[in-house]
């Protein structure tokens, strides 16, 4: 047993081991985003379909499903965050900068991963308080009645939508590099697959981006306003 724990211990302490953890947890979060977006897009299917979907989530496995998912997401999110912070600290410690800095081919998105990530963290906290915990009592009341209405009313606040869109822009940047990185870190990138992976990562980031921001934009431009008057 101790040999096994030793191996796992040194894996978790190693640079590649940590990166693999970041990649695997990132993959889980990337897949979650796809599911989340699919659910969110039901907003266009109308109040009934959306509320039914919300209800399903809350009652799946007698209500334990959503908590299993939340726990899983929390672990992934926490590990992703924890290990990237560790790695970033090591990276900062590994080098002094140049007096004359230059970058050859690293895309901008790859250079700001920690900042896009931390912005997303801040957003997630806000987002959970906003739509999940519902700290706003009025919004909470509407949410209990119809999650669909809650979303529409929530996004009718331009500041909320603006923050949402900014966060999604950084998420898009984070994904453009992060999705491709998953393949590299898990050893699935080769000369043949490098091109397709790059295109896939960008396309995926774009789908997630436009999918998510379409909702506040549509609402700001009046979608659902009749129903919530």
């Amino acid at each position: 047993m101790s040999a096994l724990t030793n191996s796992l211990g040194s894996f978790i302490k190693s640079s590649i081991g940590r990166k693999i953890i970041v990649a695997v947890t990132g993959l889980a979060l990337v897949l979650f985003l796809a599911g989340h977006l699919t659910g969110n897009l039901l907003i266009y299917a109308g109040q009934e379909a959306f509320d039914e979907y919300a209800h399903f989530l809350h009652t799946f496995l007698h209500g334990t499903g959503v908590w299993i998912a939340r726990l899983g997401l929390l672990v992934c999110f926490g590990a992703h965050l924890w290990f990237t912070i560790l790695l970033t600290r090591e990276n900062k410690a590994a080098r002094k900068g140049y007096a004359h800095q230059a970058t050859v081919q690293a895309p901008k998105s790859s250079l700001i991963m920690i900042w896009s990530g931390l912005t997303i963290l801040a957003f997630v906290i806000f987002h959970l308080l906003h739509f999940t915990v519902r700290t706003d009592a009025e919004l909470a009341k509407i949410g209990a009645e119809s999650p669909w209405k809650m979303v529409i009313i929530g996004f009718q606040n331009p500041l909320v939508s603006l923050f949402y869109i900014i966060a999604m822009t950084l998420l898009c940047s984070h994904l453009a590099h992060g999705v491709a990185s998953i393949f590299q870190t898990l050893g699935l990138r080769s000369n043949r697959t490098a091109g397709p992976i790059r295109i896939f990562a960008k396309a995926y980031a774009a789908v997630i981006y436009f999918g998510f921001i379409s909702i506040p934009l549509a609402i700001l431009f009046g979608y659902g306003s009749d129903a919530v008057k």
Binding site: S14, S15, A93
Partner: peptide, 18 residues
């Protein structure tokens, strides 16, 4: 090799391909 690399104080790859 990876353990030695880590012990030498090199940073981690963030797939930027510089």
């Amino acid at each position: 090799m990876v353990r030695q690399m880590d012990a030498e104080g090199f940073g981690n790859c963030t797939n930027q391909f510089e």
